[in-house]
């Protein structure tokens, strides 16, 4: 069953198109990473799912219900960490959670929730005095109230140190293990890589990729680089290797003593090495380099990355 489904979703502000013809589907039980640089339209998309903003055209559905018509019913079953929020300065952390419990007709232990996000000790302080990271943890606790079927988290790791970000990812994983579907936006691929089953990349309001991380790597063609050290890497060697299935490109580097082979992950390496030796070259050593996530992300979200294929 699809938890989130958008079709041709478009949002224009005057002449600016924030989201263009977005068709997206997130299935039950998935952890979906919604990626894109700042300003790509991630938050606008989420705002349309929450009925904070009305689509210019197209449709957005959550649990099969229209986001504009059935907003309240939808929001009963989701937990949200929205972007650009602020807490109620004069209310304590505990009062925030009590408000959510009352709003969602839930009956949970406030202390346990606060404990889970690591701010139980500050429960009775005014939330206006919290640090950015503590506010983020408080709102995450608010999102967890009522055991939601779907968590929509807009940049949940913003404002957190690496340790805090890891804790948030652990909470996401725990919730997912309990059957909760997660929709998680970020502008940093590393943040979603560790937990996401599938990633959608948004660029200038358009979805430019929708795949698993492995799939993305393979698509970019920089999935893996096999580096072979040795001698005698002639043009013939290069041609033979290039002709192999699963090889995207071959380069001679380091003054002829290194052969760099762009290939799919899982390519049979001994076969490649055998082929190189058969063509008259000698192999001293070999290693593999993964395309860094940063490169991968850049290739999807900038013009010079070469991922247009």
């Amino acid at each position: 069953m699809s938890m989130i489904e958008t079709q041709g979703l478009t949002k224009r502000y005057g002449s600016v198109t924030a989201v263009e013809n977005l068709s997206l589907r997130v299935d039950e039980g998935e952890i979906f990473g919604f990626l894109g640089p700042n300003g790509a339209g991630k938050s606008t998309t989420i705002n349309m799912l929450l009925d904070f903003a009305k689509p210019t055209s197209g449709s957005a559905r959550v649990f099969g219900m229209d986001c504009q018509e059935n907003g309240k019913q939808i929001r009963r079953r989701i937990g949200v960490l929205p972007e650009g929020y602020d807490v109620y300065e004069r209310l304590t952390g505990r009062q925030h959670l009590e408000f959510v419990l009352e709003s969602k007709d839930a009956n949970e232990d406030v202390n346990a929730l606060l404990n889970r996000v690591g701010i139980a000790g500050d429960a009775d302080r005014k939330a206006g005095d919290y640090s950015k990271g503590m506010k983020q943890r408080l709102v995450l606790a608010m999102a967890l109230v009522g055991d939601p079927d779907l968590l929509i988290l807009d940049e949940p790791t913003t404002g957190l140190d690496p340790n805090g970000a890891r804790e948030v990812r652990e909470i996401i994983q725990e919730e997912n293990n309990r059957g909760t579907t997660i929709f998680f936006s970020s502008h940093i691929l590393e943040q979603v890589e560790a937990v996401c089953d599938r990633v959608g990349i948004l660029r200038d309001g358009q979805l430019v990729a929708d795949d698993s991380i492995e799939g993305l790597r393979a698509n970019v063609g920089g999935g893996e680089t096999l580096v072979v050290e040795g001698q005698g890497f002639t043009d013939e060697v290069v041609r033979n290797v290039e002709a192999m299935d699963g090889v995207a490109g071959v380069q001679v580097r380091a003054g002829g003593s290194e052969l760099a082979i762009n290939c799919e992950e899982g390519l049979n390496k001994s076969e490649v090495l055998g082929l190189i030796e058969d063509a008259g070259a000698s192999v001293a050593d070999f290693s593999t380099e993964e395309a860094s996530l940063e490169e991968l992300f850049a290739s999807y979200t900038t013009d010079y990355g070469g991922a247009e294929a």
Partner: peptide, 14 residues
């Protein structure tokens, strides 16, 4: 203006 409404309206309130 402050964004507290984003918390309020992501709860089941119209």
């Amino acid at each position: 203006n402050t964004g507290t409404i984003n918390l309020l309206l992501s709860l089941p309130h119209t």
